[in-house]
Each structure stands twice: as C-alpha cells, then as structure tokens.
Simulated assay, not measured.
Amino acid sequence: MTTYHRQKGASFERGVADYLRDTVDDRIDRRPKNGAKDRGDIGGVRIHGQKLVLECKNTAKISLGTWAAEAETERGNDDALAGLIVHKRHGKGKPQDQWVTLTVGDLAAILNGNRDHLEGI
C-alpha cells in the first residue's frame, strides 16, 4: 500500500470518527493500529453498553467478503458485540453519506444486544 493510499484511508477514518464523535458520543475516535491484534479503525462506538468494531475502507473496489472476515476477526480481538464495515460511497464526500455493511447475524446482535443466537452456529 502506498503512502498516498494510507493517507487517503486515514483521512476517511478521521472524517467518519469526527462525524460520529460530534453526533453520537465524544469518546469516539480513530484507533491506533494494533498489528495482528487489530481491533478496528474507530474506537469508542457502543450500543447496549457493548463495543462495536468499525472497519473503514476507502477504495473503489468492493471486497465485502474479505472485509467482513476482517471485521469479524477484529470484533473477536476487541470482544465486541458486532463488526461493521464503513466503506466509501463514491461521489459522496460527507461522512454521513458513506455506506455501512454488516451481516444479518451482526444486525441481530445489535438489535438483541447479544450474540446468543450465533452460538454453536
């Protein structure tokens, strides 16, 4: 990954984090990278008192399967309720206009406040 792409990704993450901080909770911010134990790009996002992992992607090429696997790994690393992918909606520059993708299982976890329905599956 080039420096340009890293900067583009960091700028995207910063915009999303700042928007969520200003509109949801002032504890939300970009997270430092943790290498093999990465816990997502944005920290401080919570629902039902539990953490959510946000994995941000600023790229024209959509790779939802790969991204979902990454978000799930990071969800586990952070012991979070769910992992969500925030990805670039091309032609839209505002953070609030970007896409969010998640599995139906993660949607149910968010709605229920637990992952019990996913145990043993």
Score class of each variant (00 low, 15 high):
Gln7His: 13
Glu74Gln: 15
Thr66Cys: 08
Tyr4Glu: 13
Leu64Trp: 09
Asp79Thr: 02
Gln7Glu: 15
Thr23Ile: 04
Arg31Tyr: 05
Gly9Gln: 08
Ala60Met: 12
Lys92Arg: 15
Arg46Trp: 09
Leu20Val: 00
Val16His: 01
Lys37Tyr: 12
Arg21Val: 01
Thr101Trp: 12
Ala68Trp: 11
Lys92Asn: 13
Gly120Gln: 05
Leu84Met: 10
Arg6Ala: 15
Gly40Asn: 02
Ser63Arg: 13
Glu55His: 04
Pro32Gly: 05
Asp79Ile: 01
Val53Asn: 01
Ile121Trp: 11
Gly40Leu: 04
Thr2Met: 05
Asp106Glu: 10
Ile28Arg: 06
Leu54Ala: 07
Glu55Gly: 01
Ala109Pro: 10
Asp41Asn: 06
Lys33Ser: 09
Ser63Asn: 14
Asp18Asn: 10
Glu72Trp: 11
Ala17Pro: 07
Val104Met: 13
Arg115Pro: 01
Val100Cys: 04
Tyr4Arg: 14
Ile121Asn: 11
Ala71Met: 13
Gly76Val: 14
Val24Arg: 02
Leu118Pro: 04
Asp26Lys: 00
Gln50His: 09
Ala36Gln: 11
Ile47Glu: 03
Gln50Trp: 08
Glu55Ile: 03
Gly49Arg: 05
Val45Phe: 00
Val24Ser: 03
Arg27Asp: 08
Thr23Asp: 01
Ser11Asn: 12
Gln7Gly: 12
Arg75Tyr: 00
Gly76Asp: 14
Arg89Ala: 08
Val53Lys: 00
Gly76Asn: 15
His48Cys: 07
Leu111Trp: 08
Arg39Pro: 03
Leu54Trp: 07
Ser11Ile: 10
Arg21Ile: 00
Asp116Ile: 08
Ile110Gly: 03
Asp25His: 05
Leu102Ser: 01
Asp41His: 06
His48Lys: 08
Trp99Leu: 09
Ala80Pro: 07
Leu64Arg: 08
Asn112Cys: 10
Val45Cys: 03
Ala80Cys: 07
Thr66His: 11
Asp41Val: 05
Ile28Phe: 05
Arg115Glu: 00
Val45Pro: 03
Val24Gly: 02
Glu70Met: 13
Asn114Gln: 06
Gly91Leu: 03
Asp97Arg: 03
Asn114Tyr: 07
Val104Trp: 12
Ser63Ala: 15
Thr73Gln: 13
Leu81Gln: 00
Gly40Ala: 01
Gly105Met: 13
Asp78Ala: 15
Asp116Glu: 15
Asp29Thr: 12
Asp38Phe: 06
Asn114Arg: 07
Asp18His: 09
Asp38Lys: 06
Arg14Gly: 00
Ser63Val: 11
Ala71Trp: 09
Asn114Met: 03
Lys8Arg: 15
Ala82Ser: 06
Thr103Asn: 06
Ser11Val: 09
Gly15Ser: 09
Asp97Phe: 04
His117Phe: 04
Val100Lys: 00
Val45Gly: 00
Asn114Gly: 06
Thr73Val: 14
Val16Asp: 02
Gln98Val: 02
Thr3Val: 14
Gly43Thr: 01
Ala36Asn: 13
His117Ala: 04
Ile47Cys: 04
Ile85Tyr: 03
Pro95Arg: 00
Ala36Ile: 10
Glu74Ala: 10
Gly83Tyr: 06
Lys8Met: 14
Leu52Ala: 06
Glu55Cys: 05
Ala68Ile: 15
Ala108Cys: 14
Lys61Cys: 07
Asp79His: 01
Lys8His: 13
Trp99Phe: 15
Leu118Lys: 05
His90Gly: 14
Ala10Leu: 14
Thr103Gly: 09
Arg21Asp: 00
Ile121Phe: 13
Arg31His: 02
Ala10Phe: 12
Gln98Leu: 00
His5Met: 09
Thr59Lys: 12
